[in-house]
Structures are given as C-alpha cells and as structure tokens.
Simulated scan of single mutants.
Amino acid sequence: MTSTVAALVTDPDGRILLTPGRSAGPGLPAVALRPGETPRAAAGRAVALGAAGLVPRVGGPLVLDWAAGSAYHVFEAGEAGASAVRRITAGGTAGFVDLAELPTETDPVEVRRIAAALAARAGESTVYLEDGRPPPVLAMMRRYRIAPRLHGGAAWRWHTGPVPADLPVRHAWVWLFVPDGRVVVYVDVHGTAGLPGGTLETVDHGDPVAAAVREVREETQIEMTPPVHLGYLVDAPPGGPTVGRVRLAAVVTRIGRSAPDPATGTVHRRLLVPPRLVAELCGWGPGADGQTRAAVAAARDRGIAEAPGTAPVTEIPPDGSGILTGVRLLRPTDPT
C-alpha cells in the first residue's frame, strides 16, 4: 500500500494553494510517505517542496481518502501570511486559486478532497472518504445521527422456506417497500437503525405476520399490504436458546403521523433507504446478502423496481406528507 500526504494551505482571502508536478495536473502540495516518516512530517515536507522552501506549522489531519488501493491524507497547514504568499507566488509555479475556480484547475477527485478538507477545517473534525466521497452509509450515519454499533445479527444464519416446527420464533421484521423501490428503516433515540417489526407478544398467538403488522404500526405508524414470508434467521447464542427471527416483505399503503411507540414511549425517525444499503446501515454484515436479494425479488414480483444504491436517503416528515407518490396519508379518522 502506498500513502500520499498532502497539506491544505490558504491565503488570507481563503484561496487554496496548488502546486505543480502531478500527473493529473496541479493539486494540493503532496508527497509520498517515506519509510519511518510520520504523515504529519510528510505534510510539512510537501509544503516546503512546493512553496519556496517554506515549512508550515502543521496541524491535525483533515481528510483520509482511500482510492485505488492507496491512502491519501490531507493535513491542516493553516493560512499563509502576506509575506509567505509573496514568496510563494514570486516563483511562478505554485499559486493560490479560488474555490470556484478549482474545477478548471485540477481533477474532480482533488476538487472533492479539497472541499472535504475545507469543511473539516470549519468543523474542526476529520473526514473519511473513498475516492474523494464519503461512503454512502457513513454519510447517512452522520446526517441522521445513527450510532456505530456492533450487532450480534451478523452471526445469524439465513434460511429460505418456512420456519421449522421445532424452532421458536422470537421476532418478525418487515422489508417495507415504498413505490420508488426504497425501504423504510427506523432510527430510535439511541441512534440504532433497523427494519420495523419486533417481538412476538401473547396477543399475536404465535403468528409472525400478526406481530409484524402490529409492531410496524406501533413503531412507524405505517399501514401495508399483507406481508409475505421471505425466510428466517437462526440465532444460536452461546449459552442461550436457539430462536428464529422471521423476515417478511410488504408494500406501504398509508403513512400516519409520527407518534410515541407504546413499548418505549419514544418517537422513531423514519428513513427511506436504498435496499442494498440496508444491511450495512443496520449492522448485519455481508451475510445479509441472501435476505436482501429475497426482499428485492419479492418487491419486483409486486411491480416495484429496486431503487439503485445511489438513490437518495430521505426522512419521512413527522406528518407523513410530501414524500411519496402513490401512498396516502393516514388521517387520524381512518380505520386501522
């Protein structure tokens, strides 16, 4: 693995220092990390090589980008004073460029990195990118305050077909599709994301479908078509009973106003997520590919095409309106 280290330097007017010597054209001052050299030291060396020998007082990391098997770091190198700007520009090779001019001065990946570095500087944070962009799920987690979590569900084994008679069913969750092919995911007050559904209760009489309909209504205030069985997961925890966790699929028909979950008293946020991002967002691991394919196939059988992974993630407003075509707002007077 190779590592490139760059530095963000701006002038008093906020323009960005670009230096020559890169195959893709001008870019941030950058060098290859040497054996035994720290990335922060390399950032100082990058500026010295491209900016008239001037060495900055380097701050912390702003960006870590992973692209084509290589790591690309951007460090904070601060603002150049007026005398430093004169020395740099007098050489005629390096110069300062307005943010609006960057697309004509350097390649698109570098433009994205610089924009991310400026945002990280403003927020006093560090940004992780892949090929100059935040990974879709990471961007979603930040925007909707979804917490990182280690989920035991990554160890559950997926099976198609009916649940064996000797396997007790503990939970039933629903892949709940909207007409544009996205899936409803709820986020609770602790930042945990998951499919709507939940634990079978006495009132469900052992019926996973009844439990799913009740739990979806309580958690998300959503009505749906009769759920169809996709398969089940086997959870065999060490020292505990082995149980089944059923997965169903359905299509949203009506959306109600957000309301407290009777079980917790909290109001969940309701997101619409492309199907291929659901497993990663919920922390199920790559073993969830089978159930994702089954859910997408079930939606396709009902005339709903899969939303691409690049489709936007949006939140259903608390009043349930203004978000979907072909889905009716559930009014308080409507029967459930």
Rank of each mutant, 00 (worst) to 15 (best):
Thr2Arg: 15
Ala7Thr: 02
Leu8Asn: 01
Asp11Trp: 08
Arg15Ser: 05
Leu17Asn: 01
Thr19Cys: 11
Arg22Gly: 14
Arg22Cys: 14
Ser23Cys: 05
Leu28Ser: 04
Leu28Lys: 01
Val31Tyr: 13
Ala32Thr: 13
Glu37Trp: 14
Ala41Leu: 13
Ala41Val: 09
Ala43Asn: 01
Gly44Cys: 08
Gly44Leu: 09
Val47Tyr: 05
Ala48Val: 03
Ala48Phe: 12
Ala51Ile: 01
Val55Met: 10
Arg57Ser: 11
Val58Ile: 03
Val63His: 11
Val63Asn: 08
Ala68Cys: 02
Ser70Arg: 12
Phe75Asn: 00
Glu76Ala: 13
Ala77Lys: 00
Ser83Trp: 15
Ala84Val: 03
Arg86Glu: 15
Ile88Glu: 03
Gly92Met: 06
Gly95Phe: 11
Glu101Cys: 13
Ala117Phe: 12
Arg121Pro: 05
Tyr128Lys: 05
Gly132Cys: 07
Pro135Asn: 10
Pro136Val: 13
Val137His: 07
Met141Phe: 10
Met141Ala: 12
Arg143Leu: 14
Tyr144Ala: 06
Arg149Gly: 12
His151Trp: 15
Gly153Glu: 05
Ala154Pro: 00
Trp158Pro: 02
His159Ile: 00
Gly161Leu: 06
Val163Ile: 00
Ala165Val: 10
Leu167Thr: 00
Val169Arg: 01
Arg170Asn: 12
Arg170Met: 14
Trp175Phe: 11
Val178Asp: 10
Asp180Ser: 07
Gly181Thr: 01
Tyr186Gln: 13
Asp188Cys: 08
Thr192Pro: 03
Gly194Ser: 14
Thr199Arg: 15
Glu201Tyr: 15
Thr202Leu: 15
Gly206Gln: 02
Ala210Glu: 06
Ala211Pro: 02
Pro226Lys: 04
His229Cys: 05
His229Leu: 12
Pro237Ala: 08
Val243Cys: 04
Leu248Pro: 00
Val251Ala: 11
Ile255Cys: 10
Pro260Trp: 10
Pro262Arg: 00
Pro262Leu: 09
Thr264Glu: 06
Thr266Pro: 05
His268Lys: 12
Arg269Pro: 08
Arg270Leu: 13
Leu271Arg: 01
Val278Cys: 06
Cys282Glu: 14
Ala288Gly: 07
Arg293Ser: 14
Ala297Tyr: 11
Ile304Leu: 09
Ala305Tyr: 07
Ala307Glu: 01
Ala307Phe: 08
Pro312Asn: 04
Glu315His: 10
Asp319Val: 09
Gly320Ser: 09
Ile323Trp: 11
Leu330Gly: 10
Arg331His: 15
Pro332Met: 08
Pro332Ile: 04
